[in-house]
Computed example of a mutant assay.
Amino acid sequence: MFNAADLPETIPIFPLPGALLLPRARLPLHIFEPRYLAMLDDTLKTPHRLIGMVQPREVPGSEERKLHSIGCAGRVTAFSETEDGRYMITLNGISRFRILKEQAGFTPYLKADVSWDGFAPDLGAGEDDGAFDRETFMPLLSRFFASRGLSTDWESLQEAEDELLINSLSMLCPFPPEDKQALLEAPSLPTRRETLVTLIEFALRSGTDEEKMQ
């Protein structure tokens, strides 16, 4: 397990819209662009093997994209190479971070100086959510999955611990990048759960409104 002293001041950054990583969660990724293959090769040579996942954000009135200031770093815990040189990797979420300064020009991929201050709970044990009402939440989730044509193992969801359930749904549900960012920045598990419920309810209301218009 990582502690604060193990966390480096500079990490490689992987900006991927809609790909959310949370502490103590796992994110599978398919790496194939040459710059990110170079990033993976360099990362595997480090003792920490950390990659920072960050959501790009659009700048109004411009085609330019910048990065959100808060992301989550994951440790490469598994990787396999395909015959054509691509990689399938798994990141295990370690801690959120704040970007202090982007470093460009030294590598084909982006690196950044980061601060881990304010995210100490990410390095601890899993969170609980004592106010989580599953009897109300699960039917709501079922309606949302049905509205999006999604399927899942409902028995496994029912048995999952609070953090695993809430974080997995936050990562997997098809929300826009800005909503994913809101889930990432939630300061606690109960706050993330409240945000998740709000997003699901909004999506269901929006779907109903669209049906009425048609």
Rank of each mutant, 00 (worst) to 15 (best):
G74T: 09
M138H: 05
M213P: 14
L157G: 09
M138N: 00
A78F: 08
E83I: 12
A160H: 06
T43M: 03
R26F: 12
K111H: 03
Y87Q: 12
A203F: 11
P17M: 07
P12K: 05
R98I: 07
L22P: 13
D179P: 00
S151Q: 13
K66T: 11
I13K: 00
D153M: 13
A182V: 12
F32T: 07
L22F: 00
G130K: 03
V114L: 13
P28T: 10
Q103R: 08
F132E: 04
G118S: 09
P60L: 00
L44A: 03
D6K: 12
E102W: 01
A125R: 10
E163M: 11
L91Y: 06
Q181P: 07
F2A: 13
K101V: 07
F79V: 05
C173G: 02
S142R: 15
L196Q: 08
L204G: 03
F79L: 14
E135F: 04
R24K: 12
Q181Y: 13
P23Y: 06
K101D: 14
V76H: 03
N167C: 12
I11G: 04
S69M: 05
P176G: 07
Q214Y: 15
I70C: 05
A203H: 09
L21M: 08
R26K: 12
A19R: 11
R98N: 10
T195A: 11
E211V: 15
R96Y: 11
F32V: 04
L164C: 06
E161H: 15
